[in-house]
Each structure stands twice: as structure tokens, then as C-alpha cells.
Nucleic acid binder design. Structure first.
Lengths: 401, 401
DNA sequence: CTCGCTTAATAAAGTGCCCAAAGAAAGCCG
DNA sequence: CGGCTTTCTTTGGGCACTTTATTAAGCGAG
């Protein structure tokens, strides 16, 4: 609980500059100096370090404005790489990203399901190392592994706590075991949080924004970023949108949590009820796997099937209510929707959530609030996990104690 | 939007140490050094400044642990003072606090009502100066004025935006006018936020906590503090609990916002409906002023009147649902209830909210969450406004950009 | 009571980051 | 080609903090 009173700036100037280079594309030293508030002299020194480390490269020169033209600098994307792994019961997603947060390699395998953790861990380590090798990446350039998981967790210990779909993993020393198996630093975090970081690091999110990334998978979680810094609350179990009790204003149904009402299983169940009641629809659900059913429904919704459209619309409206509440509590100005559930009919979700916020957002007299689809949709959590590693190692940020 | 890359630590070490002295009571240099992470040598230097400024004083010595006994240091409460003013339509509360955040003077007058802002401003300046003089406080020791107001505001400009009960004040240059009239720096902020800061500065809130102060006045707003730092979101319009749409699970009523359902007016209306329906009760409501009615109801509830108990219970249950949502989104570990509405029946509110959180809080496996009544109840916002000035001037904190 | 031991606090010297100002480099323009 | 503008780098100094060394203040054994 001790706070670093000293040499906080040591790493921070580098981090600050690197972050601006990353986000502001090719940029000159002069501009960086004014943006960061550092003097040109300091800029020279900091930049020299970044250049010798290979993190930044000169990429050309600007037009002259009457004197010596500015040298443009940009991130050297291939200087470092990070691995992102998303752990799920139904699937494991592996991603390798470069320094810019762009995907350079990708792999999806069957999930953790009922396999014992030990086996899954060694499988993960093997697959990740294989992927790096296949891509022809120098192992030295890989700085770490990010691991995204759903539900509640203890980040200090690096363990999951009673994950609903990964029962065996509760309290299992996930992070430490993977670290040992793979020989790289491992960072565990929530899928909502990693999605948010991924969007910030890779996308064009304004640096000063207060953003929320909603991850819609089997569950519904959210990560919050304040000016690019992860908001962690008391124990990093932040953004539990899915646990919110809804009374589904339009459906008239009994109160239930957002996750159960608006998640894939809830949508599938609603459609099944409608079909059983004889609704007109071309849909035929398998009935065994709610995720597969949801995919069918989302696709049908895009094609205009009325039952599917109604189900997706209701799901999005429920989500919109929850997001509105979060927006009013956090005073957000940016919302990103991510995860497999918005991979197909994401545009419908975005439109409905945006509309609700435009109507009901409390601070709308002060500023707008933009809703956007994640640039990585299904892979958002894995890509974000990799970005989390990049941010943590190269541009560490924190606030609070 | 430039970030200070440099001399951020200059003021910060002093601030850090002062903050620990304030919160950890009489404490030695050695302990401070380990708490802050500074070396004993630095501690000596920082402390020398604080001592010469008079902010801290030596108050004795600890028992020896085998060597030279530690010198104990503590805040010098009378070194500085701050003024806190709460602006309301129905009342104006003035408070003067010392450096420790304790009230040393207090005054309540009629509210802003329909008076033109210019008149109210000059009245405020006059009353505040009079209060300082009456207390025999040296004007030099007063470092500023904090101003708490309800609703949406633009802190950069120092104006209120469309306040429901203070129509004339919308866009009026409140902060600047008061600053000019009173000749002291003025800090404007939301009543929820100031309440939170007041509780943190004056009370014994753990330094690392993620806390939320819910201010229950005519409206319902909340301020959020992360490790003692105000969480501001995109535009400081954070914590809008009152705008949350409720469906009042137990009441069966139509959806309405928390503010209207669970606020004083909502409670008064509910009781009136019950009485009209012939419920058994000793209550007699005036009917003109919902605040006065609410006070009667809260008092009756404490005495066991069934209609009053039911109304207050419902109000608290609605509030509890909203607080639970906020707790799950922010991963809180501390909730403070403040404001006139909890001045009387606060214990009932605390109990019901605490119970709901114990049941439904998502991260309860990780850590507890404590609900507490504000130490200042009705005056919380004004006391907090003064504390905000103290914190801002003496121990500035911030995160984000 | 005094000498040795322990812990607290201060002093002095050194390190590292940043800034300010002056100088060097690189292009425009007559 | 030399003045001019703008960019970038070098140099010297300041400041906060650290490390190392010294002084201060109490305890306890003989």
C-alpha cells in the first residue's frame, strides 16, 4: 500500500511520449513537446532512448514551414509483440499483436470445457509458443502474455473466483502456472477490461475520453478506461453490468438480471417461446447450444425475420437501459460494444444504444456520447489482453493508491 | 489538455505527507517514511517545510523501542480555515471548518428561492465574511470558499446548467461573481462530490477505499472518490443515481426515476396515497411542503408508525437497488449516506442498504462493503465544500489527463 | 554513573531528470 | 552564397530525492 513518492517520472516521460506517438500517428518532436508539456530539449533525450530501443522510428519529414522541416516519428510496429489469450469454456482464442496493437497472428481452438486446468495450461503454452514460431517472430521481441477471462477474479493472486462456466478453475493459480509454463510474464484481467484497453491502444479513441467497453459474450461485463487508464475500483471487479436487475420494461417479464434477459441464452429462450406460441418466422433453432442459436437469430435479424428482429431489438433495448445507467454514473463520453454477441448484428445494437443515450443521457447538455462497435468484435478480449501487456510494460499508467 | 511531465512531484511530496498526517493522526517521521515510500532524509526536509508553514506541529513523543523515541507529529487544525457554502432553493448553509475538516462555525439562512442571483451572491459574501469575523478568525488563515450545488454544472465555467429548483441561475457566472464579491478563491462542485470529499477529509475513511457518497436532498446525487481522489468522468457530471429508472419492484408502481420515487416528494406522495386509502396512522401531513412532510414521516417512522415505516422502508429499498448497481459498476467498498433526508431516519436507510449489499454485491467474495451515515448529515455538502478547498489547495490530487 | 547498544533524526555528497539558453543543422529566399 | 527561419541538440544549472555518514536521544548492564 506504499505509494511511490519518487522516481515516478523516470519511466513516465518515456511512457507519455510513446503513448502520444502511438495515438497521434506520425508526429514530429515539436508537436510532441507541446502535447506532452515537455521542452524540446527533453524531447530530444527521451526520443533518443525510444529510438535506440527501437520502439520508435523516423518515418520521413514534414513539409517545411520556412525553416528546417520536422522529422516525423512513428511507432515501430514490429519492434515488440505481445500474446493475448482469451480463456472461455467453449473456445480459446490466441492472438499475437505487434506494438501498434494490430493482429499479426490468430488461432482459435476448442475451449477449456471439462479438461483439468493443468492440461489446459500446458496446451495454452504450447499453442502460444507454436503460434509465435509459425509467425517467424523472434522470441526476444515478445514481451508477455495477456490472459482475458470472464467473471470475478483476484488479480493479486492471479486466480479466478467461482467462474460460472469454468468451475474447476476457481482459485486455481492460473496466472502463475501459465507464467511458469510459457516462460513469459503473464497478466490476467477481466474480458471487459481487456477489450477496453485493446480499443484504446489499437483504435482511435480520444486520449482524454471516459470510455466503457461492454463485452457481450456468454455473460455481459464491462471495462472502464479514464483517459486511457484502467479504472479498477476496490478489487478490479468493476463494470458488472450483467448483474444488474432488469424489469425489462417492454417485455412485461419478471425481473431478472441483464445477463440472463439480454444475453445469448435469454434471446434464444425468448425466440423459442415466440416460436412455440406460433409466431411467423423462418427460424429453426437447434435448441442444444444457445450460442449457436443466438448466431442463427442474429443472422436472421439482419435478413429481416420479424421474430429475430424483435428478439434482438429487445436484447439491445435492455442493454441500452443498462448502458444508460452506467453512462450517467460514470459520465461517459464513449461506449464500445465488443464480443461475439455483437459480431453479427452489432449494428442493430449500436443504433439502439446510441438512440437511447441521445434521449436519456444526463450530461447531454455538456457533451455528446458516442457508441461504436469494437474494431475486433469477437477477438476484442484477446486482442485487448495483448494490448494490456503492451500498455503495462511500455506505457504504464495508474491512479489511486 | 497538456499534461505536466515535470515538477509534478514538487508539490506532491508535501501533499502526500500532509495527507498521511491528516488521516493517520499523530504519527512519527519514521512511520510516514515507510507509508509514503520516501526516505527518512527526504522526510526530514518535507516535514521541515510543513512545520515552518505551521500546517503540522510536534505533539509529543512515542515510547522508545530501544533507541531514541519517535517524535509525533499532527495536523495543526487552527493553521488554516475554509468556508463551505451549500446553495439550495430552500436554504443556504454556511460552514467554516479548520484544517482538520472540523466545523468551527455554522449558519443557516433562507434559500436562494426567487431572489435575483446578484442579490444572493452579495448576501452570501456578506454572511460568509461576517461569520469569519464573528469567529475571530484571522482573514489570512482562510484559504478559500467551497460552493456546493445540486444538479448539472460546468465546472470549467463555474456555472450551473438548468438546475430544476434554481431556474434563474442557469448559466449565471456563479463562481466568478462570488469570487469577485468575497475576494477569495471559490471552488464550485456538485453536492454529492463535496459530501464525499468532506467525509474523506474529516472522517476516518481508509485512504485506499473506493467510496461513494450519496447525497439525499430534494434530488439524489452521488460523488465518487477513488483513493481520496474525486472521480470526474468526462465532465464532472458523475454519479447521477437520481436519474436511474426504477420499476420499484415491491410497489408495483409504474416506472419512474429514483429521485421521484424515493426522494422526499415521492415518499410524501406515497404516504398521502396511503392515508387517502384509509390506512391506520397517526400522521397528519401539511401537504404544501414535501420536505416538511418528509421530516414528519421520518420522525413518525422512528416512532414506529406503520404507514411511515412502510414509506421509509420502500424509499430505502429503492435507494438500495440503485446503490447496489453503483457498487457493482464501481466495485465500491464504502458507501456514505448524507444529506437532510437521512438526518432523521438515516439508521433505517443504512440498515436496509447494507443488507441489500451484503446479499447482492458481486465482489462480496473479494471484500466487504460498508455503509455508513455521514458524520455531518444535513451539513455534509457544505462541510465537504470546505474540505474540497482544503484538499485542492493543500493536498491536490488528480488522475487522468 | 557511565559505557555500549539501539533507534531517530539530520547533514553532506551524489544521482538523475528536467529546463533554459545557446549553438548546430537543415531547409527556404533573395 | 549568405541571411533568415525553424528544428534539433548540446551544455550548464537547479531541484528533488537517494545514499552514506554523523549526531542526538534514550535504554540497560555492570
Amino acid at each position: 500500500m506504499t505509494r511511490a513518492g519518487a522516481n515516478l517520472t523516470l519511466t513516465t516521460s518515456r511512457a507519455l511520449v510513446l503513448d502520444f506517438v502511438r495515438s497521434a500517428g506520425p508526429i514530429s518532436r515539436v508537436e510532441l513537446a507541446t502535447l506532452t508539456g515537455l521542452t524540446p530539449a527533453t524531447m530530444t533525450n527521451v526520443m533518443r532512448q525510444l529510438l535506440t530501443d527501437g520502439l520508435v522510428v523516423e518515418v520521413g519529414r514534414d513539409l517545411s514551414t520556412g525553416g528546417k522541416p520536422r522529422v516525423l516519428l512513428d511507432i515501430n510496429p514490429t519492434a515488440r509483440f505481445a500474446v493475448g489469450i482469451q480463456l472461455g469454456a467453449d473456445s480459446l482464442t490466441y492472438v499475437v499483436t505487434n506494438l501498434g496493437g494490430a493482429i499479426v497472428g490468430r488461432l482459435r481452438t476448442r475451449g477449456a470445457e471439462d479438461s483439468p486446468p493443468v492440461a489446459v495450461i500446458s496446451r495454452m503454452a504450447g499453442r502460444a509458443k507454436q503460434l509465435i514460431e509459425d509467425l517467424g517472430i523472434d522470441g526476444q521481441a515478445v514481451i508477455g502474455v495477456g490472459l482475458a477471462a470472464p467473471g470475478s477474479m483476484d488479480l493479486d493472486k492471479g486466480v479466478l473466483l467461482a467462474p460460472p462456466t469454468l468451475g474447476q478453475w476457481s482459485e486455481y493459480p492460473l496466472r502463475d502456472e501459465l507464467e511458469a509454463a510459457i516462460g513469459l510474464p503473464v497478466l490476467l484481467d477481466n474480458d471487459g477490461t481487456t477489450s477496453a484497453v485493446g480499443e484504446f491502444w489499437g483504435g482511435d479513441v480520444p486520449d482524454a475520453s471516459t470510455m466503457c467497453a461492454v463485452y457481450l459474450g456468454a455473460g455481459i461485463g464491462a471495462g472502464i478506461l479514464i483517459g486511457g487508464t484502467v479504472f479498477r475500483g476496490a478489487s478490479s471487479n468493476v463494470g458488472e453490468l450483467g448483474q444488474m436487475w432488469m424489469t425489462a420494461p417492454h417485455s412485461g417479464a419478471a425481473p431478472d438480471t441483464l445477463e440472463r434477459v439480454a444475453g445469448p441464452a435469454g434471446v434464444a429462450a425468448a425466440v423459442r417461446r415466440a416460436l412455440d406460441a406460433g409466431a411467423e418466422s423462418s427460424l429453426e433453432l437447434g435448441g442444444t447450444d444457445p450460442i449457436a442459436d443466438f448466431t442463427l437469430i442474429a443472422t436472421a435479424a439482419l435478413l429481416g425475420d420479424p421474430v429475430a428482429v424483435a428478439a434482438i431489438t429487445h436484447s439491445a433495448q435492455d442493454l441500452a437501459e443498462a448502458v444508460l445507467i452506467a453512462a450517467n454514473l460514470f459520465d461517459l463520453d464513449f461506449v464500445v460494444l465488443a464480443g461475439p454477441s455483437v459480431a453479427i448484428a452489432g449494428s442493430m445494437y449500436v443504433e439502439i444504444v446510441q438512440k437511447r443515450l441521445d434521449e436519456g443521457f444526463f450530461a447531454k447538455r455538456r457533451h455528446g456520447i458516442e457508441v461504436r462497435l469494437s474494431t475486433h468484435a469477437t477477438d476484442a478480449a484477446a486482442v485487448g489482453a495483448a494490448a494490456l501487456v503492451l500498455q503495462h510494460q511500455l506505457a504504464p499508467r495508474s491512479f489511486g493508491s
